[in-house]
Design a protein around this nucleic acid. Structure first.
Lengths: 218, 218
DNA sequence: AATAAAATTTAGATTAGTCTAAAAATATAA
DNA sequence: TTATATTTTTAGACTAATCTAAATTTTATT
């Protein structure tokens, strides 16, 4: 069995390897997990002993199949619990992350599968992130963001790239939630600030905000 | 915040003080938690520092109000999750204990209250144990067991005093589940083995089994 | 290519929870 | 009521995960 801590490291390495590609760096892991690089080195050695990662000193770390399987299954749990919290317990999308961080570690096959069934086999979590299926297959978003659109284009919001409470909360106030339709009315050339139409209301959003909103053109 | 371990100690002390009364013994705690008496002594000191228990060397330990509140809230979580697992995820009553042992430690007020509401404010868990309300009030069973009945008496099953998988499984096979009606047909004088009628079928059960079945006379 | 900067690893210490073995206190029994 | 058994505590050690500070390696810059 793996400890919560080991699982959190595997999850962090998985997420970083999607961005960074091969050879995830010690510092990047320390950053995500809010720990120190020296602690990361220690844990990496332990995970390497367990054949969860492959590792050569100073060269970064990569997940083995075994490690990736654990990471994906934790992510599957996390996202299923988020769906549960939002759809069944009426939490808002900015409230569920921390709770799901705890629930995800109850990594029992039967519980996960029953929960999946209870929820009707959802494909996406409340932030639009894809839920891996029970064999660990996961469809990645093609990352078209609101900031990629040109004036006049329309799109539906399908996800977010930033999960902070403050960002999610801000989006909700602007009614920029999953499924909402947006139309780009104007783009400021200088800093890419956008005017968009959402539910017949015109709103101004910064590039910082628009580049973290994943959309699908319509 | 309390660690999982601290919470498990508090829960164990709470449960023992219902049985043993004042001054729960070090050995009894070690027994329940499958640890050693020396470890228990260490933890008791820690909990005493935190004002969770009152403790005098060699005289056993008692929960303070603070400690009892934590214990009861963990038990509340545990039993609510058991209801969820059985009623929503279709687990059987002999499968839910271990999962609930993990879920109970996600001790967040809002989650507990939302779960309670989602489940329709249940009063008992799938084993008939009472669920403490959100203020920590808990109704204790008056322990009339099947073994207390005389020939000819009828009763409804309302709970169990023993929660092992094998016992619960055995009961289920005999259809001795919560809500079932039983009628005592015969009692062997020698060892108190009982013949009982359940769902029109006659069954023989040992005293060991009947004294762990909590019933309500009808 | 030499040097400065950044990243990473090592060494040694710390904390929580556990253990064994021995000592001390309490309970039981002749 | 003294001896014996049982229970409980202490002392000292161990493991997992972390940290700081120093050493080492890699990368970037002149």
């Amino acid at each position: 069995m793996n400890s919560f801590t080991e699982e959190n490291y595997l999850k962090a390495i998985y997420k970083l390897s999607l961005k960074e590609g091969q050879g995830v760096s010690t510092n990047a892991i320390a950053d995500i997990l809010k720990t120190k690089p020296s602690s990361v080195t220690d844990m990496i050695k332990k995970l390497a002993d367990k054949k969860m990662v492959s590792y050569q000193k100073y060269q970064g770390v990569n997940l083995t199949k075994k490690g990736r399987d654990v990471a994906v299954s934790i992510i599957r749990n996390h996202r299923l619990w988020e769906v549960f919290l939002v759809e069944k317990l009426n939490f808002k999308w900015d409230e569920v992350h921390d709770l799901a961080e705890e629930l995800e570690h109850i990594n029992t096959h039967k519980l996960t599968e029953r929960l999946d069934e209870f929820l009707g086999f959802p494909k996406f979590d409340p932030h639009g992130d894809p839920i891996p299926d029970k064999d660990g297959n996961i469809v990645q978003h093609k990352d078209i963001t609101l900031s990629d659109l040109s004036t006049g284009e329309k799109a539906v919001i399908v996800g977010v790239k930033e999960h902070s409470k403050s960002y999610l909360n801000y989006l909700e106030q602007l009614q920029l939630v999953l499924g909402a339709e947006v139309e780009v009315k104007d783009i400021v050339e200088f800093d890419a600030t956008m005017s968009v139409l959402v539910n017949k209301k015109q709103t101004i959003i910064s590039n910082q905000a628009s580049k973290n909103l994943i959309v699908k053109k319509i």
